[in-house]
Design a protein around this nucleic acid. Sequence first.
DNA 1: CGAATTTAATAGTATTACTATCAATAATGC
DNA 2: GCATTATTGATAGTAATACTATTAAATTCG
Lengths: 225, 225
Amino acid sequence: MATLRLQINEKLFLRDPQETVLGRKIIQSSIKMIDELGLEGFTFKKLSAEIQSTEASIYRYFESKHKLLIYLMAWYWNWLEYQIDFATNNIKDPQERLAIAMKMITEVNVNDDYFPDIDETALQRIVIYESDKAYLTKHVDDDNKDGSFLGYKSLCEKVASFIKEINPNYDYAHALTSTCLEASHQQIFFSRHLPRLTEHQYKEGKVHEDNYNFLMDMILKTIDA
Amino acid sequence: MATLRLQINEKLFLRDPQETVLGRKIIQSSIKMIDELGLEGFTFKKLSAEIQSTEASIYRYFESKHKLLIYLMAWYWNWLEYQIDFATNNIKDPQERLAIAMKMITEVNVNDDYFPDIDETALQRIVIYESDKAYLTKHVDDDNKDGSFLGYKSLCEKVASFIKEINPNYDYAHALTSTCLEASHQQIFFSRHLPRLTEHQYKEGKVHEDNYNFLMDMILKTIDA
DNA sequence: CGAATTTAATAGTATTACTATCAATAATGC
DNA sequence: GCATTATTGATAGTAATACTATTAAATTCG
């Protein structure tokens, strides 16, 4: 089977981690470790020990821990948009396309054999816990100029375009989409850690199903589909 | 005029900052500095220099920077719920109560003379940039056990109860409320820094108005009001 | 008033997030 | 095949952060 490679914006790294053995180890192990330790507990020192390399070597790939996070999040949004493109290909009805997109956004990821280096399931957990930290900073405008959030914006644009096709008169397609994208991970977090903030039940795929039903219902009613 | 004091859960501080001059200075200056520097740029060392005290003294009030953030957020959510209680008092119609609550949640805060030590306008900006970081941690369950998020949950419960009154058959009142509470600050952030994620225009109160219209419309349609 | 307790100031530690330097090794070009 | 260049590794170092321990000063209370 073919393996694929997502083209990631060059400004997000110093050396392309997809091009070398060390680079791929950095990506692989950082996903595993951020998932386990959380972004705050994760350091380049610990990572370098894990992959039997040195801090200095890792810094040759990524300017900082924050840039590595941005890279991982960019990878994820690019991957998710690609999944949606793939799954909605040849589907004519925009409402069906929207349903497929929301399904992929809300469902728990299975590991994608096309990208053997990446544990998509772990990466999705990182998205839930850490993705907002990628932009909630004082230097968000600088990061944005470097194209750090292009993948997220592009995904938002895609889903918003489905909504616009269904109802061209709805005025808040992007706001509604970004609200749902954020909710798609927030509600998972709440159901697990702050259950009084949601009805969704955290267990075996149930949250994801609840979340799909909740969000699809909200979107369709809101846009008068 | 009377000045008020919000009773904050004792587990959120080591010494009550509202009881001493130093404590009030810590609160006052930390709001100002977190607003200016961001949570990452803010340190107890800088704060101690600003208020002409020492790091050790500040640590006697708050166990950590993170606990201080939790305290400020708890204060904000308590204050906001109190504002909503005040404003919805004697209003019978639940739909009107919901509208008032959403207005207060989305509008830009003016400084409340009842609490002279707190700059509510600055605190609201901190909520926009930093509030999610209060719970997006690996130790969220421990913080939750200490009651760190009671204010947020209580506010969510209140708004959800208005929704339930309007339509007792809607199944996701809490999920919808928490989604809107989060969106109420996310959309402000997006309109300013990542404008491709929203239609809202960042200027002079316009975002807040847009956001109110967007969210109220979404809620009412979603719950079939 | 004097003992007990609280509060403040000083100094110190472990860790983090990097940076710099230089040697060793591997890949590439002629 | 050998020189050039790029890449990695090893070591060390720095400034700042997040806290802690110790001691000194002030305050409270019986």
